[in-house]
Design a binder for these strands. Structure first.
Lengths: 184, 184
DNA sequence: CTATTATAGCTAAGTGCTTAGCAATTGATA
DNA sequence: TATCAATTGCTAAGCACTTAGCTATAATAG
């Protein structure tokens, strides 16, 4: 059974026969699979008037436990986005009455994001269906296979993250770029 | 070794002990791993003045083989984006002189996107380093483990894609949404 | 042949992210 | 204690995508 990635690999082996492009088989499928899963999950979110970003905020508040209050900075860390993106997500959710902003009694600079009653009802209703959608996808694998997959993903993740903070990666390759002079 | 996903699962088991959230272990790691890989690849693209989107277009043209000409529609299918997004990517690349637009002799409506000499030189220079970066990540796994991972991802992909075009998924859950009345 | 429908590529407007830069408060240092 | 630095959360502007809607050409039906 040949898929899109197979076709891409075939093209490369024709055009660049000396280049071993086997890493693309892994990484290409990784991104495409993540995309397919995302798009499947979006359908469930939409049934509750949510998208992945909004669900993420509400779910993070819910699983933090009563009294369902956390700082925007914590939300940003958890979702791996900028605090600016969090502020914009909160603006939307607050307009819909799903979260509220309260002063942080322990820090005059900060606030606490609180789940409103409506927000709690909505995320309580959406959570189980969401997990069911996820289970629909993952149950194609046995428990052992799932553990295996998780282990492989963790190792890939570690390999990808390794050395990302090294400064040498900002080196310019001037010679290959001469004719471009992209002036911005 | 506990990671971010482990912490999230622990929170859920405390807050919703009756809910089996094990699917999150798989899907959470899938998205986060894809993200980490993406971000690692971006560093290599940047060394050549490119981002993933631009690299994608140039690489697609290159692997199509001489005379390195394909239609915007084909580019859109390949990259899984809208033809409008392709047009905008092409505007940028054309401004930089990396691709050009030519009339399609076989279809008066269409055009052909052509790799310029500068574009060919740049993608020829960037391709091998990119694949090397990918290999740096994937070589953490043995060949057998890579095949295993690919097989598991393909099955997850198939499960996620399955039934995505069914109309029943647009059903509204009105009762849970009453208090929201998000008017758009 | 003409009228209709479908296709190809584009711009415009809207969305959600990013980085840059702001005001306010807190923490660290002399 | 006064000052300087770091942190917090925000808006503004820029960027890459989306959908909607446009024009032009091609394919189809009568």
């Amino acid at each position: 059974m040949t898929d899109q990635v197979d076709r891409i690999l075939e093209q490369w082996s024709t055009e660049k026969p000396d280049l071993d492009v086997s890493p693309m088989a892994v990484i290409g499928r990784l991104s495409r699979t993540a995309l397919a899963v995302e798009s499947r999950l979006a359908a469930t979110f939409a049934r509750y008037g949510l998208d992945a970003s909004s669900f993420d905020v509400l779910a993070t508040l819910l699983r933090s436990g009563a009294p369902y209050r956390i700082s925007p900075a914590a939300l940003a860390r958890d979702a791996m986005i900028s605090t600016s993106a969090v502020a914009q997500r909160l603006n939307k959710l607050q307009t819909r009455g799903l979260v509220s902003r309260e002063a942080n009694p322990d820090d005059g600079r900060g606030i606490l994001v609180a789940l409103t009653d409506a927000g709690k009802r909505l995320i309580d209703a959406a959570l189980a269906p969401h997990v069911e959608t996820e289970r629909t996808i993952t149950q194609i694998l046995s428990d052992d296979e799932q553990s295996l997959l998780v282990g492989l993903l963790q190792r890939i993740n570690a390999a990808a993250t390794h050395g990302l903070n090294e400064s040498a990666q900002r080196t310019q390759v001037a010679s290959a770029n001469d004719e471009l002079s992209d002036p911005k």
